[in-house]
Simulated assay, not measured.
Amino acid sequence: MTLWRDEALAAVNEVLTQCESNARHHRYSAEVLAAPALAGSLQRLAAERERMAEQLAYQLRAHGDLPDASDSELDSLHELGDRLMARLAARGTAVLLRERAEDERRLAAAAQLALGHAVPGDVRPQLEHIRASAQQAATQVATLVDRDA
């Protein structure tokens, strides 16, 4: 077992943390949105991000490291802002969806950054999958914004 404590590890941990954060943001947003179709889309996306986080955490442990934990206090602050936006006029939904699309763009960027490092070969396919999935999700959520507007 090789211990790879370097920038690659930090970058992979950042992807993991972003997956966890996105999952919570998507799930919470789904709870406060009134539209069932939008909520369902975000719930499915949240479940996918949770699975990705679990897989990355497993891979990090397999390489002898413990995954970082995300900042639950910061997430709670984001959720408060989300609740306020969702309760505003109809544009609150659009603002909330734009933020979820931006979350996905941040995840894709974190995965791309991690791929630029010398990550172990068994982690690389997962990062490539996360990057592609996040890019696709950002586009899909942006489409929901356009459709909802």
Score class of each variant (00 low, 15 high):
16 L>Y: 15
71 D>Y: 04
6 D>A: 08
120 P>R: 09
92 G>T: 04
94 A>C: 07
47 A>S: 10
25 H>M: 13
30 A>L: 06
123 V>S: 04
53 A>C: 10
47 A>E: 14
117 H>G: 02
28 Y>Q: 12
61 R>E: 08
87 R>H: 13
112 Q>Y: 01
95 V>M: 10
99 E>K: 15
115 L>S: 03
65 D>T: 04
100 R>E: 05
125 P>K: 12
112 Q>H: 09
55 Q>S: 10
77 L>Q: 08
139 T>W: 11
39 A>W: 00
11 A>K: 08
10 A>Q: 10
32 V>C: 09
149 A>M: 10
141 V>L: 10
47 A>K: 03
77 L>C: 04
29 S>C: 14
82 D>C: 07
135 Q>T: 12
6 D>R: 01
149 A>K: 05
86 A>Y: 04
40 G>H: 09
11 A>F: 14
84 L>G: 09
22 N>V: 14
62 A>T: 05
104 E>V: 09
65 D>L: 06
132 A>W: 00
96 L>F: 04
88 L>R: 11
12 V>P: 02
122 D>K: 06
114 A>Q: 09
112 Q>G: 15
12 V>Y: 10
51 R>C: 01
56 L>P: 01
122 D>C: 08
16 L>S: 12
93 T>E: 08
95 V>T: 11
102 E>G: 08
3 L>V: 04
136 Q>I: 02
146 D>G: 00
23 A>L: 10
146 D>N: 07
107 L>C: 15
74 L>N: 03
83 R>E: 14
42 L>T: 03
83 R>F: 09
4 W>N: 05
52 M>F: 05
60 L>Q: 06
121 G>Q: 13
47 A>H: 01
27 R>A: 15
64 G>N: 03
40 G>Y: 12
32 V>S: 06
107 L>Q: 08
19 C>I: 02
16 L>H: 15
89 A>L: 08
60 L>K: 07
100 R>V: 13
54 E>V: 02
62 A>E: 09
111 A>R: 02
113 L>Q: 14
18 Q>H: 12
17 T>L: 08
36 P>Y: 00
9 L>T: 02
127 L>N: 05
2 T>E: 14
28 Y>T: 06
71 D>Q: 05
74 L>P: 01
100 R>A: 15
65 D>N: 06
97 L>E: 05
1 M>V: 03
45 L>N: 08
52 M>E: 12
118 A>L: 11
39 A>K: 08
41 S>E: 13
132 A>S: 14
89 A>D: 15
4 W>D: 06
118 A>S: 14
46 A>N: 06
143 T>Y: 03
67 P>W: 07
95 V>D: 04
106 R>G: 07
99 E>D: 14
49 R>N: 12
32 V>W: 12
92 G>Y: 05
122 D>V: 09
125 P>F: 12
135 Q>G: 09
96 L>E: 02
142 A>P: 01
77 L>E: 10
95 V>Q: 07
94 A>T: 09
42 L>A: 09
121 G>W: 02
29 S>W: 03
111 A>T: 02
142 A>Y: 07
2 T>H: 13
72 S>G: 07
107 L>S: 05
17 T>I: 13
34 A>N: 07
98 R>M: 11
107 L>P: 03
102 E>C: 03
69 A>S: 13
3 L>T: 04
46 A>G: 15
107 L>K: 00
33 L>P: 00
98 R>H: 10
58 Y>M: 00
88 L>N: 06
129 H>N: 10
77 L>W: 12
59 Q>N: 00
111 A>W: 01
22 N>Y: 05
